[in-house]
Amino acid sequence: MQARHRTALFLLPAGAWFVTMLVLPLVVVLVFSFGERGEAGGYSPAFVLDNYFNLPARWTAFQNTLTLAPVGTLACLLIAYPLAYFLAVRASEKWRTLLLVLVIVPFWTSILIRSYAWIFILGGQGIPALISAMGLGDIKLINTPFAVLTGIVYGYLPLMVFPIYVSLERLDKRLLEASADLGSPPWRSFLQVTLPLSMPGVATGCMLVFILLMGEFLIPAILGGGKVFFVGNALVDLFLQSRNWAFGSAVAVALVVIMLVTVTAYMRLTSRWAGGRDDLSLM
């Protein structure tokens, strides 16, 4: 009995944090979403469903987010996996540390500054100038969905690389020997052993990147030139510019619901892949 009390005591700070930092804001947003825009903007109490009926007005933003978040996640995965594989399996000890640091280094500066650097790289005097100088024609990169995608991959790559790296690094190399011993050529060993055993890392990385991308607004604002509008941008706009907090809350609630649904579906799917295992690091 005493032990249980003590446990409860230890959980108190975490519980308090959970309630004030997670539950409370969600409740506030939910309440606001049924309200109305105040006279000078902001929120004025009411109970109406108008905000939800008005959601289709942000259809484009949802459409952009729901396309570019999965596409961005996939692009991150396709680039991160070989990189993580190289780091965990191929790189020598000496290089591994250096390369890992290089992967993290961009995280040391703010995403804002890093994205601004991309404005110049993708801008008229950057890559397009190079391509045009090579006689390959004029292209426009900056302020396009492609630029946003580039920024996304750049910004979120480490979040994808690290979980995959860890799962590959933990992978028992003897399993690959066992696979070869049993007659599997290397590429098939990769598909039959390495890939399935790195799925927890892949699942974690995809989840991290996808969830964060669903709320992204900085990269589309900077590299999309305000023309590639995410739900995150719609939220910034509704809370900071048009100051329609009630509608903004409804959009936020819709985003949370969409995320809950996709994440739940995703977790169901990945746990089916994992065959109900909770521990893949078995010796």
Binding site: R174, A178, S179, L197, R277, S281
Partner: peptide
């Protein structure tokens, strides 16, 4: 001759069974 083409099989020290 690479391992996967040799007509031998091994029982590994810690068995190296596929956990998945």
């Amino acid at each position: 001759l690479p391992a996967h083409r040799r007509p031998v099989n091994m029982v590994f020290q810690h068995y190296a069974l596929f956990p998945h």
